[in-house]
Amino acid sequence: MAPKLKVFTWSDGFHAFTVAASSRPKALDAWGSKQDLFATGLASQLSDGPDYEAALASPGDVITRGLAIDVGKIGKARPKKAVGVSETKRAKIETLQAALAELDETHQSALADLDARQAALETERRRVETDHERSRTALAAELKKARA
């Protein structure tokens, strides 16, 4: 099940930046922020308004609205390029992120397979226990008869 999206916003005084994300860290990552804007009180969670609707329409994309520049204009923010990160390093980061996502998906699949196998083993164990009890009861009755 996909995590429920929340809408977060912060402002630099000139623009409001809004994003729909599943958590505060993911919102900070989308904004490219290295500091916790929520801890400083600059960022908060939104519950309605035009920025809220625009962010939910494009989850993960940063939506900007002009406050002092381009007042009222709402649109997608241009992706910020990390300062000092070469294209080679950026490509390596993207490759590693994709590999990490694939690893997590493989892990989840393996866990689901193990859960299914464990459920099958538990069913088999109950069957063996029932068969054993039934056979033991019958043999105990025959033994009692033979002793009498």
Rank of each mutant, 00 (worst) to 15 (best):
K6P: 02
D131M: 13
K145Y: 10
R136C: 00
V19H: 07
A119W: 05
L56S: 02
E122I: 09
T123P: 04
G41E: 04
T64W: 06
H107K: 14
R127M: 00
E94W: 13
S86W: 04
I93D: 11
T18A: 08
V128S: 02
A146T: 04
I69S: 02
T64E: 00
V83T: 10
V19R: 04
S44C: 05
I93K: 07
E133R: 12
P59S: 03
R147Q: 01
G72W: 10
R134F: 06
R136L: 13
T18V: 02
T64Y: 05
A30D: 02
M1F: 02
A120N: 03
G75E: 13
A2Q: 05
E122F: 12
Q108F: 14
F17S: 00
A54K: 12
S47A: 01
A16Q: 11
V71R: 13
L37N: 00
K4V: 09
P59E: 07
A2I: 03
H132M: 08
L42D: 12
I93L: 13
D131V: 09
E122V: 08
R78T: 07
A91F: 04
K34Y: 07
K26C: 01
K92W: 12
A141E: 14
K34H: 12
P25F: 07
T106M: 04
K92L: 15
S109R: 15
Q35D: 11
H132F: 14
A148Q: 12
R126V: 05
V19W: 09
E124C: 08
D12G: 05
V83H: 09
A140E: 14
T137E: 07
R125L: 13
A116K: 15
A82Y: 07
A43M: 03
Q97R: 15
V128E: 00
G84S: 08
V7M: 04
M1C: 01
F38N: 07
A112I: 04
E53M: 06
A138F: 13
Q45M: 08
Q97C: 11
P79L: 10
R24L: 01
T9N: 08
K26Y: 05
A57W: 10
L111H: 11
R147D: 04
L46D: 02
R65Y: 04
L121F: 10
S109I: 14
A77Q: 00
A43T: 07
S23R: 08
A116C: 12
F8P: 05
V85E: 06
A148S: 14
F14K: 14
L143M: 12
A110R: 15
E133I: 04
G60C: 08
L121Y: 09
L100S: 02
P3N: 05
W31K: 06
H15Y: 10
T130H: 10
D115R: 15
A120P: 05
R117A: 13
R136H: 13
V62Y: 03
L37R: 01
D36T: 09
H132E: 00
E87T: 08
G75N: 08
R134M: 01
A16Y: 11
A54V: 12
L28V: 04
D36F: 00
A101R: 13
H132Q: 06
G49L: 13
T123E: 14
K81W: 10
L143P: 00
P59V: 09
I93V: 15
L143E: 01
E87I: 08
